[in-house]
Design a protein around this nucleic acid. Sequence first.
DNA 1: AGTTGTGAACGTTTTCACAGCC
DNA 2: GGCTGTGAAAACGTTCACAACT
Lengths: 208, 208
Amino acid sequence: MANQNRIPIPTLTRFANLYRVLQEAEAEGVEHLNSAQLEALTSISASQIRKDLSMLGEMGRPGVGYKVNLLKKRIGSILRVDRGHPYALVGAGQLGRAIANYPGFEDYGFKLKAIFDSDREKVGQIVQGIPIESNEHMPASLLQKSIRIAVLTVPRNAAQDATDQLVAGGVRWILNFAPTHLKVPDNCIVRDVFLTPEFAILGHFTED
Amino acid sequence: MANQNRIPIPTLTRFANLYRVLQEAEAEGVEHLNSAQLEALTSISASQIRKDLSMLGEMGRPGVGYKVNLLKKRIGSILRVDRGHPYALVGAGQLGRAIANYPGFEDYGFKLKAIFDSDREKVGQIVQGIPIESNEHMPASLLQKSIRIAVLTVPRNAAQDATDQLVAGGVRWILNFAPTHLKVPDNCIVRDVFLTPEFAILGHFTED
DNA sequence: AGTTGTGAACGTTTTCACAGCC
DNA sequence: GGCTGTGAAAACGTTCACAACT
């Protein structure tokens, strides 16, 4: 039965993937998809999909499947894709710019509103229509723009400092690409995206 | 007791993090670290660390802790950091270049050996000392260089094509940044690194 | 005393299997 | 007949707690 509160992270991750597939299906004019078809498109098992979707209440029709536009809308509302979350990018290096320029995030309701970098040379440069600001105004600028979400792509040794300033500026959700653990207050959520472990895992499975 | 075969992915991820910390400790001349100290450095719980390390056989000494250089060596061999895995980058866009230029991967034994892009403009450009090759020679070039590992950073609609060519070129491990599911033969391992779900999850926790 | 290694308890996530609905 | 929704079972991963070792 529907228990909309407290959806596990693995389920949310799968919702994000389903959302993309549903978007594509809708664009192609597909009206219904059943759990087996969704499995083919995502390689999430059909039973897993049904279990996940059961958290949203009864979304499917036995014998028919799930209505694409309805399901997309429902998952979208869970992921809050329609809110236009403003976010800040801290660290306008290569990875940071790649993320700023990555087109996919807007589909999920995220809107880049500020970019910070400690490098004086970069300050004032325009990326994605946003001028890079100096790190120094970070807290004030964040507060003024009501930004609560940040993506952190600074070098490891600058990460904790930048984090402290983000927190001072009212940021409560951080997507962290710096390969280090961030210390934040309890009311702040950090999602770590570490690339080296991904490589390292690949290494382990390597043979010969 | 030591069951070196079949180490769970979460454990491998933690090993990769421990490896970095051990590298730093070794560089600083630290000889021993106990599980509580490792917890402080990684925020992996001490009992979790002991459990993970117990998979490697008895690596620590009660009352003393773990010998840094020994443990680093052991984890390194699990992650096969000493093999100098040659890898290819497919897609020399911003994200691809950011990854190519990221210094951390070499520490884990990965060595960039080829770059491919379908854009004629880019072919011949040098990135990290490697000339960008045209997609067309991909399979032949991969085979010639004995490359078995690839990082895929092409747009979604080019991803499956590129994957097919990688597989034709003998690649068996793919780190996939393209936000789509790749179809590969059974003997090929794909690790997906999807950035949008990370954002999407953040969105769900957003309030207001 | 200090710290490991590990069985046992716990909690979470996935898979199974099928009753019930379309 | 086909497919969903869901309890029940299984698998998995983490934390606890303590005997054993230095």
